[in-house]
Amino acid sequence: MKKLTKIVVLAAALSLFVAACSSSSDDTTTTTEASGGDGGLTGSLLISGSSTVEPVSALNAEAWRAIHPEVGVTVEGPGTGDGFAKFCAGETDISDASRAIKEEEAADCEANGIEFIELLFAIDGLSVLTSTNNDAVSCVSFSDLYALLGPESTGFTSWSDADGLAGELDGTNAPYPDADLVVTAPGEESGTYDSFVEIVLEDIADERGQDAATRPDYTASANDNVIIEGISGSDTSLGWVGYAFFLANQDKVSALEVDGGDGCVGPTPETIADGTYPIARPLFIYVNKAKAEESEALVSYVDYYLSDEGLNSVDQAGYVRLADYGPVREVWETRTTGAADL
């Protein structure tokens, strides 16, 4: 009896272990077996940076790797700043970014002898949303958004609570309707939050000696679908999400026109691409030039990224294509280094 148990137990333990080992070696064999592609490229690519850009890079990596199955690819999205820190230390091949590289980051790269090629490949528009039932407001200025969502609006529960604050600012649409102000938007940990603060609130906040941040008292969510639910759930709601989510939910929410100083403009692919819609941010990939000279795989991946096929991922991830890809392809073909803005 005892001997039997012992054998059973040992067999169980052994099979568990063998199963574990054999399946991890399965992993290797499947990847090798799949190498029927015509790529012939090897090596591995490490892509890090913005979590906003991560979906595009990941979709492209997956599609591209179907042609070049021998190449290893890792795409991470810790954030633009973290991404540049790694990139400028020479750890990554490509850095995804939802803003242009900052001067101190570029200096860091230079100090480490890292030359980069800056490739602007898409634009992300942020839509300011309200319920489809809200017909009292159709256009908001940056000042309106500051009065309703900025750091000084903490505690406002009705749109009209912001009237006094709006009086101190220029170019507002105050007085506002006396209706519940229900705010649903991304939380502080998200890149979308960051962009909204940077583009819309920061300048006014700086002028008034306030922190560049939103009011803390709103419903925050990491899931854009939940934000859409929240905005459609109240007739007098306010919030913002990436343009893609507005597009997918036009039946539930409506986008307000935004006045960035040059009149009211609604978000459309055209206005976002040509820069007339004021709340938009550029999406970049930064390629390490020296690594691109060494690695055929890296060149092939970036080629794919900027090809018509690769740009399908931009649509799929919900961002807006540039009007003309000629210049950026030119920058890549000539391997032009440096940042356009610095």
């Binding site: 979590s51 999205g77 954030g79 633009t80 502080e188 940990e189």
Partner: peptide
């Protein structure tokens, strides 16, 4: 968990 999984841009 929220701090550990967020994006870096406002962290740190």
């Amino acid at each position: 968990a929220a701090l550990a999984t967020g994006s870096d841009q406002v962290a740190g």
